[in-house]
Design a protein around this nucleic acid. Sequence first.
DNA 1: AGCAAGATTAGC
DNA 2: CTAATCTTGCTA
Length: 198
Amino acid sequence: MKPRIVPRSFYARPTLDVLRDLIGKVLVHEVRGRRTAGAIVEAEAYIGESDPACHAAPGPTRRNAPLYGPPGYAYVYLNYGIHHLVNVVTESDGFPAAILIRALDPIEGLDLMARRRRRGARSADLCRGPGNLTVALGITLADNCADLCEGPLRIEDRGLTPPDVAWTPRIGIRVATKRPWRGCWTGHGGVSGRKSSR
DNA sequence: AGCAAGATTAGC
DNA sequence: CTAATCTTGCTA
């Protein structure tokens, strides 16, 4: 199967279904003709205003506006003043939900990724961790609201066999840590997490 | 206008 | 385990 951009209808479904099918898809970013890409290995779901960990929990604000918009768009924001995190907006237009991309398996542009990551990192570590993969792919606030179905930032289906997905609690947050809304590529070494979760 | 908090990471 | 660092949103 040749590379194909994932259509908007893919994202207009229940978030956990999208999350399961997103593992194994390829996130691509092109800057000045240079392409970087990696297979999604780990991601977390943030669903609705009733999810205390979701940015939409306080209701609509200027910052989380993309979450309420149509599916298939990127929601990028700065966390802890240091790290950019990428989310994929899901569900129907008007319902706030998204999937945080936490780790990738580098496929293209490894040299460029290494250059962007100042601290030396082995190729397998280039895109491990939500804050690290945005640096490796060169994703910034400028990519907020980017259309993932068209443009320099997109998600492709390269025909990889859908991997088994392991569900675990979300990490790195301090509320609602018991919901098993973190999907990991079973047995893949590129999954983030500092301790036992690997 | 000022302040506290946060979906992280690296370093001791 | 804790510091670093800045945007957002709430309070005055």
